[in-house]
Every structure is written in C-alpha cells, then in structure tokens.
Design a protein around this nucleic acid. Structure first.
Lengths: 130, 130
DNA sequence: CATGGGGGTTCCAGTTAATGGAAGGTCAAT
DNA sequence: ATTGACCTTCCATTAACTGGAACCCCCATG
C-alpha cells in the first residue's frame, strides 16, 4: 500500500507519516522503486498515532503505547504497569474533557441567547474546578 | 498575585505563562516594579488553558473558547454556534479516549501475565475502530 | 546598612512535532 | 512520448514551548 492510500485511511498527511518513519515510530517496507510499502499493521499504528496525538499524548507516550503492542514478550509485570499508568492518564483526560464539556454546555444552555450581563456562567467560572 | 504563585496554582511553568501573555491569551496587569500582577480571572484562564492544551486543543481553539467567556455580549447566535461546534469536538475527543481506554484495558486484562504468543489483543487490534 | 538568596524581568537560542516547498524520479493512460 | 497524479529527498519554516544568560527587586539576617 502506498503512502497516499495510507494517508487517506489513517487521516494523516503524508508529510506526517514520513516524519513518523524518520523518528522510528513506524518502519514501512520499500518497493524496488523506492516507494514506501505499508502493511496493515502500519496503518493500524498510524490510526492510533493520529488519535493519540490529537488527544494530547506526546510522541514519547505514543512510542511507549506502541511498544506495548509490539512487545513480543508482553507477559511481564512491567508492561502491565506501564499500561496501567497510561490507563490512569487516560481516565484523567476523560474527566478533564467532561469538566470542559459540562462548563461549555452550561454556557450554551444558560447564557447564550438573552444577553443579560449577569450571566450565571460567570459565577460558575469562578468555581471552575482546579 | 505574582507569576510564581500563579504558576503553582495553574500548574503551568512560568515560561509558558509569559509565552501566553506574549501571544495575547492573557493580559495580566503590571505592578510599579514591572512585575506581572495576575487577577483571579487570569488564573482561571490559565487553568483552563493548561487543561485544554493537554487535551489537544490548539492555541487557536483555546483563543476561541476564551473569547466565548470574555464576550461581554454573549447573546448572539454566533457564540452559541461556536460553542456547539466545540462541544461536538469535545464529545468526539471523549469517545476517542474511551476507545483507547477500552483497547488498553483489554490489553491489560487479557494479555499481560501469561506470555502466550497468540494474545487475543492482536486480533482485537486488527479491528481497532477506524 | 550591605549582602545573599529567592523571587522577578527581557531577550535570544534551541527543541519538538510537524508543515511547506523545491527539484526531481515513477507509473498508468492517452 | 508526454501528461498528470503520485512518489522521493532535502532544506526551510512554523507552532508552542523551553533553557539559559544577564540583569533587577525585595526582604531577612549579621
């Protein structure tokens, strides 16, 4: 599979995919003409990378998460521990997002549409969870 | 309030806070000695910025979201529309995170600890939601 | 009162994670 | 055989910080 098709499937620019190869996140094969030749597993990784990056995981986080999947010997407690750490991080991201969603949807429901200057969201904002 | 205290409260490096001022996301006052003097509202914005950035919102997203809050005349349908758009984006981030969490917790539950080479997560990965 | 340490300031350079563009090779169809 | 879409590398630029140098401010202690 060439880079264009992969780019469409993974919804990542070709530039970014080449960059991910440069930094060793993926290692597509090469055809005789020099074109990159992607396997399904490369595409899966790229889909994952696209999502994880969009959610604020760093490249190094992603490298670790991919290593969990690549690990041929994933029986160790280490791997489990790393995965659990990441799970905790993900749970916390989810609740942060929920907090932002709640605040924003409150803003939409209560404050848009009537122009009153003492919009209750302003009070709410003062308590915005820290 | 000086930058050090704000940095602790918002859990952002002072460097980043100065940078956010440079690019106009916040506009703290200045004391006569030239020190930045932050109001509570600045701190709230910074807390928000820290979270939103960690969740993959761009600086420009953040600028728009902050504008919703700052908007003295937030009665317009425009504001409502922008907020709704962001809400949709947030919902989609939440479900992406949930997908990643489910995959990862499956990995933890099913695959770590026994070293068998035909770990079921590998099959699962092939269906990883695109 | 000076002096040392822990703040704060600006400015400039470097890093990370891409992104844009030039210059050129490849392929499939007309 | 040439056109156009696709691929390649390489080099420069951007976005969002991050580190470091050089310097100013404040206040507690000797």
């Amino acid at each position: 599979m060439n880079i264009g098709e992969v780019s469409r499937k993974a919804e990542l620019p070709a530039k970014t995919i080449r960059y991910y190869e440069d930094i060793g996140l993926i290692s597509p094969l090469r055809d005789t003409n020099g074109y990159r030749s992607f396997r399904d597993s490369d595409v899966h990784k790229l889909v994952f990378l696209g999502r994880a990056r969009a959610l604020g995981f760093t490249i190094e986080d992603c490298r670790n998460l991919l290593a969990l999947w690549d690990d041929q010997d994933r029986a160790s407690a280490d791997v489990r521990a790393i995965a659990k750490e990441h799970l905790a991080q993900i749970e916390s991201k989810i609740s942060d997002l929920q907090a932002i969603r709640d605040t924003l949807s409150h803003l939409v429901r209560e404050c848009a549409g009537d122009g009153r200057p003492d919009c209750p969201i302003l009070q709410k904002l003062e308590e915005f969870p820290t």
